[in-house]
Design a protein around this nucleic acid. Structure first.
Lengths: 117, 117
DNA sequence: TTAATTACATAGGTAGGCAAGGTATGTTTA
DNA sequence: TAAACATACCTTGCCTACCTATGTAATTAA
């Protein structure tokens, strides 16, 4: 696992990115998918995930629909049109930040690339 | 300027990277150089910079030598051998984190690259 | 002579994320 | 059949890195 500080500010963007791609997901599914996509290297804890989802719902970025699978509830988070716009701008911001950081870190040649949407 | 949260966890790494490259710098110089390298897009505030430098000094990553320029003091921070090791591992960690994030964000093709040292 | 820049520093507040805990159902395995 | 693990939701309390604001003081430019 990485230094806990690095993840700050990125969790919300990760959530929005996944929801933008998939339209609708439930909390546990999001946490699983992040773990799977990163080979277990990025783990979003529940104490970070659920408060973040609730906040995004509260500000109208997400809506929820709850269903029952057997007796167990499952709460789907759906991204709104507003959320999609927010998602795009946040992803863009993260990408720009990376490029700025690269000007210091020289991780790789700065190849402008906007294929992330 | 970027979301303040994104910078979290990276300030220390930025400081170590610059000091590893230049051997010795003073606080104000570091803040200027970060601003210049990133075209003003990344600003390290003094309230973040000086506490970070003091912390790194306290744990033996940096040493200091104070000189006088006219009547004004200037405090140079020098990176120790221990600091160089820390620097390398932190930079590597940041690079790995970026690669993991890319597996979610698809910013660009994941081209393994270790030319950042 | 006033403003901007250089150069250091600290105090107080914010907020995101973590650790830990709680509740409950479903499934596997020993 | 019992224990262990996985699924699925959630909250509280705490940490700490960072920001804003403020302070001091010398130097330089307008």
């Amino acid at each position: 696992m990485y230094s806990k500080e690095l993840l700050k500010g990125t969790i919300e963007i990760i959530i929005l990115k996944l929801l933008h791609e998939n339209g609708s997901m439930y909390g546990y599914e999001i946490s699983r998918q992040v773990k799977e996509l990163t080979d277990g290297k990025i783990i979003i804890s529940e104490g970070a995930l659920y408060p973040a989802l609730h906040k995004l719902e509260a500000i109208g970025i997400l809506t929820t629909t709850t269903t029952l699978i057997g007796k167990r509830q499952r709460k789907y988070y759906n991204i709104t049109d507003d959320g999609k716009k927010t998602s795009v701008s946040k992803i863009y911001e993260l990408h720009s930040f990376f490029q700025s950081l690269n000007q210091i870190m020289h991780f790789k040649p700065a190849t402008p690339d906007a294929s992330f949407l």
